[in-house]
């Protein structure tokens, strides 16, 4: 086994350990501790949650290393952080900080409108967003060890995450059922690396873990994404923009673990207080949508 494939096993492996879990956006050490105590499997260290990035506008960049360090020191669960799409130096900085996972994220303002980071060049694993199988396969080809739906971050509206998950899973089912001689044409049509599609056909599943992200706000939202095929859930603004973060965090963790048990979800959903107020994605101007960034 070469060094590269050993790194892939270890980096895809960490994402496998996060399955069935909830990854929560946090902006302070205190929030990170609340997330860990509530049963988060990892935290995403940020200066601002997506809802605030949206509200405040301007260029959104990698977080201040001091914010990231404080969160790393506060918890023992893995700490992730975001870099701008294509910003390989922000990624080098996060690697130097020994972050556990890098999210090359459309939530930040892209640094490169044509290229993503060559993720094979890093020891630290990457998670990337996707809206369909083409995007997922391109990111896996570039070396992503985990993928997530893009959804529409900071809206508290799950509709885009549902669209992206259904599209991705539907295209995988199509790929698995097509004739061998139809695969090259399909690969061209969705602009996917042929080898990644061949790999999916061979094993019958994506080679990396696939989480849902972008708009998950309630325990039922989280369970919905699990039933649609997600391996786990990212909750961004949904927890610390709600009325009672600790209770909501615990409830979402339970809903993911017991996603097929409606009575359980009913019980944990009782009296959670106010969910974050949501945005209607349909009335949102194209320029304010984040999911179109980084094809």
């Amino acid at each position: 086994m070469s060094d590269i494939s050993e790194r892939i096993i270890v980096n895809r492996g960490l994402a496998q350990m996060l399955k069935g879990g909830v990854i929560m956006d946090v902006t302070t050490a205190d929030q990170a501790r609340i997330a860990e105590d509530s049963g988060a499997v990892a935290v995403m260290a940020l200066e601002r949650v997506p809802a605030d990035i949206r509200a405040q506008g301007g260029v959104a960049r990698m977080s201040d290393p001091a914010v990231i360090r404080a969160i790393q020191e506060a918890v023992t669960i893995p700490v992730m952080a975001k870099v701008r799409i294509g910003h390989l130096v922000e990624a080098q900085v996060l690697q130097a900080l020994k972050i556990d996972y890098i999210d090359e994220s459309e939530v930040l303002t892209p640094a490169d409108e044509s290229n993503h980071i060559d993720k094979h060049a890093f020891e630290v694993p990457f998670v990337c967003g996707c809206r369909d199988l083409g995007e997922a396969a391109r990111r896996i080809g570039e070396g992503a060890s985990m993928i997530r739906t893009k959804g529409e971050a900071g809206t508290g509206n799950v509709v885009e995450a549902v669209r992206h998950m259904r599209t991705l899973m539907g295209q995988i089912r199509m790929l698995l059922s097509m004739r061998e001689d139809e695969v090259p044409g399909f690969a061209r049509e969705i602009a996917a690396p042929f080898e990644v599609l061949a790999d999916i056909r061979k094993s019958g599943a994506l080679p990396v873990v696939n989480f849902a992200a972008g708009g998950v706000a309630t325990p039922a939202d989280a369970a919905l994404m699990m039933q649609l095929g997600a391996d786990g859930v990212f909750v961004g603004s949904g927890i610390f923009k709600s009325g009672d973060p600790a209770r909501r965090a615990k409830a979402i963790v339970e809903a993911v673990a017991h996603c097929d048990d409606p009575a359980w979800i009913a019980r944990v959903s009782e009296g959670l207080g106010e969910a974050m107020s949501g945005l209607d994605v349909r009335t949102m101007p194209e320029g304010e949508r984040l999911a179109g960034r980084g094809r």
């Binding site: 086994m1 050993e6 096993i9 270890v10 980096n11 492996g13 960490l14 350990m17 790393q72 023992t76 893995p78 700490v79 690697q95 020994k98 972050i99 556990d100 996972y101 020891e123 630290v124 694993p125």
Partner: peptide, 30 residues
């Protein structure tokens, strides 16, 4: 818990064990 540090220190090692005369692949992840 998580005594070996962050993910960059996670490794695949071929180690010896009482169960086998040949090295065993061992994947350590945090």
């Amino acid at each position: 818990r998580n005594a070996y540090g962050s993910q960059v220190f996670s490794r695949l090692v071929h180690g010896s064990s009482a169960l086998s005369e040949t090295p065993t692949p061992m994947v350590f992840i945090r």
